[in-house]
Design a protein around this nucleic acid. Structure first.
Length: 543
RNA sequence: GGUGGGUUCGUAUAACGGCUAGUACUCAAGAUUUUCAUUCUUGCAAUAGGAGUUCGAUUCUCCUACCCACUACCA
């Protein structure tokens, strides 16, 4: 039994999206579980679609997820160019392997499994249009190739002349007729396809001296001794071609096994997940932020949105695979242990952004207070807040279960660092940020001036309305003045004050909002003196 | 159009051919709390439709419907 070797072979035509990361992840998990190698190969055989930066993006995205290739373009932070003991098959970029492919393409022509075609793009387009006009589908196969210009129909000397004179010819696979290709997929089971429905795919292009995906893929998988090909479902239709190619080369015995993963679908409606969905519905589809070099357009990333890499990996793993148990939280090593292709579903999975957030929330709670503090400190610094790490850590411990992302901490607890009087300066409106102050009913009210948000800022009109009553405030102020923070609750109770109303009134003064942390918790961090100052400020503002 | 793949609560999924079709997210209600959140409890909600095989079908077979992918000198 040979060593398990799988590969992830993306095309650098843009940023890798989460479906691609999932494919890489499943390959990685499979390899590690079997004690094998995970290889990263770059399939850049289409020079027209090359996007600068895309390859680096792919490498960075995988690293962020904790997926490190054993072999391939990226090895421990360095780009591999030359073959070495660890990277015997370098280079791993197909554009740098072009000499290899021509040899194999010509081998197929010699053995009769392929031929040279001289049709121009215009001629093919014309043939397609004609077929369409007759209500038929143009298939470039044994039926149509006899009427086209190629090394099968032209005399040998004519072929020789064209090969030398022209630079736009291609090598096409000679799809056999009347055969049924029987295949087994690790996920989908047995599949059979009649070759009559398949066409003579282009394998190699003279114009840029490069193979197409199909040839490069088979040759490289063979040369790199790949044992399992785990890829997206979009490749299923070309599986028969790939089987036939292995056969044509005589490589059936070492042919890898195939597993075609279900697609990631958009959260609502039909169709596969696309970049647009994320922008429209407010979730990232890319692991990392990406700015397109052509358009300058930026797409958000999970990393920048505040997702933890292990949470991202976890949620991705559960999209299409399940452990068969009720466990949902898995670390990467646990996934390596539990993963199996048998448990991968056949149908496409609709991505659920709510569930994605839930995963992050779970991971955030599992993080230690000190770790979260280290992440929160830079955010505070950005806000111009200087606070002792110990102080911040106490706050983090208190608020972490109210948050989904670390950046939520500031919105949740900003008032522990700055007084409501400063909120305007920070562009923070405690409570609902989208509160619409314009209310026609208020305009008629004699106290409208007080209730107007601009005048009462940072207190929201609706909160003032609800919690600021002069007699309540008087009681609240008395309690704050007379009692120590720890004894506040007792004081209010002992003096027969309405607990809920008084507490909420105090909270409004302390935090500028009608909801949030417990009063005693707030006072523990800001102190009695600051608490009183905020009470006075509210009185001044609203009294 | 052709070829291939798919179909269990709204979503992700579980269920050797065999109890009342389970779980998580979302949503709703209740309890707790000084408010909010958390937590806990409860609830809503599914085998696409039709035949067949079988004592018995979510599971196996066929048909229909719907969805998806592919149908490039792109991957």
């Amino acid at each position: 039994m040979s060593k398990t070797r799988v590969r992830f072979a993306p095309s650098p035509t843009g940023p890798l999206h989460m479906g691609g990361v999932r494919t890489a992840l499943y390959n990685y998990l499979y390899a590690k579980q079997h004690g094998g190698d995970f290889i990263l190969r770059i399939e850049d055989t289409d020079s027209n679609r090359f996007v600068p930066g895309a390859e680096q993006y792919i490498i960075e995205a995988l690293r962020w997820c904790g997926i490190y290739p054993d072999e391939g373009v990226d090895a421990d932070g360095k780009i591999v160019e030359e073959p070495s003991e660890r990277h015997p098959h370098a280079p791993y970029r197909q554009s740098q392997r072009r000499v290899i492919y021509r040899k194999y393409a010509e081998q197929l022509v010699r053995s009769g499994h392929a031929y040279c075609a001289f049709d121009t793009a215009e001629e093919l387009e014309k043939a397609r249009a004609e077929a369409e006009g007759r209500g038929e589908t143009f298939i470039y196969n044994h039926l149509s190739r006899t009427g086209l210009r190629n090394s099968l129909t032209l005399p040998a000397d004519e072929v020789q002349r064209l090969l030398e004179e022209r630079t736009d010819w291609t090598i096409r696979f000679r799809m056999p007729e009347g055969r049924t290709v029987a295949m087994d997929d690790l996920i989908r089971g047995h599949i059979e396809v009649d070759t009559a429905t398949l066409d003579d795919k282009v394998l190699w292009k003279r114009a840029d001296e490069l193979p197409t995906y199909h040839l490069a893929n088979i040759v490289d998988d063979h040369l790199m001794e790949i044992t399992e090909v785990i890829r997206g479902e979009e490749w299923l239709p070309s599986l028969p071609l790939h089987f036939l190619l292995y056969e044509a080369f005589g490589w059936q015995d070492s042919q890898p096994r195939f597993a075609h993963l279900p697609l990631l679908l958009k959260p609502v409606g039909n169709g596969k997940l696309s970049k647009r969905d994320g922008d429209k519905m407010g979730f990232p589809v890319f692991p990392l932020r990406w700015t397109s070099p052509e358009t300058g357009e930026t797409s958000r990333g999970y990393r920048e949105d505040g997702y933890f890499p292990d949470a991202f990996v976890n949620l991705l793993a559960m999209l299409g695979w399940n452990p068969g148990t009720e466990q949902e939280i898995f670390s990467l090593p646990e996934l390596v242990e539990a993963f199996s292709l048998e448990k991968v579903g056949k149908s496409g999975s609709k991505f659920n952004p709510d569930k994605a957030k839930w995963f992050n929330k779970e991971y955030l709670r599992m993080r230690s207070d000190s770790e979260l503090t280290a992440l929160f400190l830079p955010i505070l610094q950005e806000k111009g807040i200087e606070a002792a790490p110990g102080f911040v850590e106490g706050i983090v411990g208190l608020i972490k279960e109210r948050a989904t992302f670390v950046q939520d901490f500031w919105t949740i607890a900003s008032y522990l660092f700055i007084a409501p009087s400063q909120f305007a300066d920070y562009g923070v409106k405690a409570g609902a940020a989208s509160e619409k102050p314009a209310d026609p009913k208020r305009a008629a009210d004699p106290r409208a001036k007080v209730w107007d948000d601009a005048a009462t800022a940072p207190f929201l009109a609706k909160d003032v309305d609800k919690f600021y009553k002069p007699e309540i405030f008087a009681a609240a102020l008395e309690a704050m003045e007379q009692a120590e923070p720890e004894g506040l609750e007792d004081y209010i109770r002992d003096h027969g004050m309405p607990m809920g109303k008084v507490m909420n009134c105090i909270r409004l003064a302390l935090s500028g909002a009608s909801s949030g942390l417990g009063i005693s918790d707030i006072l523990r961090f800001i102190g009695k003196e600051e608490g009183l100052a905020r009470m006075h400020y509210m009185q001044e503002r609203l009294g």
